[in-house]
């Protein structure tokens, strides 16, 4: 069953549409009325300091967590819904890899969870490892991987089942500049091939590369627009200044 949103029924359905999301943990409101639309083919960045609610919002959108009030539509389907977990690729903040296993075994495991098997599975493993440039390290145990290699392997796993939406929680956190650049190159290439990407970041120069960004602060979405428009709107030179102006200035 799908619940097309009335606002979008005439247009092509947005990839993500949230309406008035509220989520609190033990009396502390982490998300306070988030309404957001992400269109097909966009590279959308959620920019905000740590603790602002980015990861919680990601978990609501992916259906891992359930909102207290408000709705999430993912590709037109009301979340949380188990079958929708097949439709996006996910990369968590922590490298969730099994260190005792080789990269290939990790990939095989996750590929099987997404229902890939046989020749198709082997092909996809080769393909995604080529994308992140780790083909030479397929048979190494993950515990022997460097931090950057683990990050790339995580990205490869998210790409395994060719999802139309990629959800990346801080994909470049703790990564050296060279590697960060190479990951961004991959992301932009994926976007150009039609994959919608939703990512979180607290790094300003990364946010500049997004098509649109949503500024999130203390659980509220303070502004959503292109990086250029945000700068113009606030009369700021840099995105950082814009963030401070539009985010309401003082910290709560």
């Amino acid at each position: 069953m799908s619940f097309p949103s009335p606002a979008s029924s005439a247009l092509t359905a947005p990839v993500v549409e949230t309406e008035g999301l509220v989520r609190s943990f033990g009396g502390r409101t982490v998300l306070d009325g988030i309404s957001l639309r992400i269109e097909r083919g966009e590279l959308f960045g959620l920019l905000g300091p740590s603790g602002s609610g980015k990861t919680t919002l990601i978990k609501l959108i992916t259906g891992i967590d359930r909102a207290d009030t408000g709705t999430v539509l993912l590709l037109g389907e009301r979340m949380p819904k188990l079958s929708m977990l097949q439709r996006f690729g996910y990369m968590a903040q922590a490298d969730a890899l099994y260190g005792e296993l080789t990269a290939r075994e990790n990939l095989q495991f996750f590929a099987s969870l997404y229902g890939l098997s046989g020749i198709r599975r082997s092909e996809r493993i080769q393909a995604v490892m080529a994308v992140v440039d780790l083909l030479d390290h397929l048979n190494k145990p993950v515990s022997a991987y460097s931090g950057g290699m683990k990050r790339r392997l995580s990205l490869a796993i998210a790409l395994l089942h060719e999802p139309e939406l990629l959800v990346l929680d801080e994909p470049t956190v703790g990564i050296d500049p060279v590697l960060r650049q190479s990951i961004w190159k991959e992301l932009l290439a994926l976007r150009d091939n039609g994959t919608t990407i939703l990512l979180t970041t607290h790094v300003m120069d990364e946010a500049e590369k997004c098509d649109r960004i949503g500024l999130i602060r203390d659980g509220c979405l303070t502004a959503v627009d292109t990086p250029e428009a945000l700068k113009t709107r606030s009369g700021a030179q840099s995105l950082e200044e814009a963030f401070i102006t539009l985010g309401g200035g003082e910290r709560a």
Binding site: L82, Q86, A92, A94, A96, L97
Partner: peptide, 14 residues
């Protein structure tokens, strides 16, 4: 604690 359960549960596994 290593986060693999969260990752596991972000797949369509029941």
């Amino acid at each position: 604690t290593t986060g693999t359960l969260e990752r596991l549960l972000a797949t369509p596994i029941r």
